[in-house]
């Protein structure tokens, strides 16, 4: 499957998913763009655990910045931007190996998927800690105005 089909379908999937969550109309396009670029980055970095971390870091920082600029809640952008990165296929393979009784393969694939989820969680944690430290400086700077 060529990469542009994957990116296009990622964009469409993200838009549909945000429509399912009743995301405010103005934010849908932007979060789909963030999702597509993030997923492209993830594919470019060959889908390793580090790729999960870097792509999520990019998405989270972009979402926090967008939320600040548009004075919206971060969760609005983050939810539908992150969804393409969730290791769905890894989780499915783990289940299939368990059903087939091939536990060593299940462990291999399952640990890779769980590491991916942990990397995503870690990246969200980092960016959210970084951004929760920024507004104090901004507010102080705004006061004299």
């Amino acid at each position: 499957m060529s990469w542009w089909v994957q990116l296009l379908s990622c964009f469409a999937a993200s838009i549909c998913f945000s429509l399912m969550l009743n995301q405010p109309r103005r934010t849908i396009f932007l979060s789909a763009v963030v999702a597509t670029v993030g997923y492209g980055l993830f594919l470019l970095l060959r889908q390793t655990t580090m790729a999960y971390f870097i792509a999520t870091m990019f998405i989270a920082v972009a979402c926090e910045t967008l939320a600040r600029c548009m004075k919206k809640v971060t969760t609005l952008f983050l939810t539908s931007s992150l969804i393409p990165l969730v290791p769905g296929i890894g989780l499915y393979r783990t289940m299939r190996y368990i059903v087939e009784g091939d536990y060593s393969q299940a462990l291999n694939v399952g640990i890779a998927a769980i590491m991916g989820i942990c990397a995503i969680a870690l990246a969200i944690t980092f960016s959210s800690v970084i951004f929760s430290n920024i507004p104090h400086r901004k507010r102080k700077a705004e006061k004299p105005c």
């Binding site: 999937a13 969760t75 969730v86 499915y92 299939r96 989820i117 969680a121």
Partner: peptide, 22 residues
């Protein structure tokens, strides 16, 4: 493989996990 994992994707607890972390 892609059908089942793709169809399950929208049902996965993405928002719950993100909120749990935050």
């Amino acid at each position: 493989e892609p059908i089942i994992s793709g169809a399950v994707m929208p049902m996965l607890p993405g928002l719950a996990t993100t909120n749990a972390i935050r």
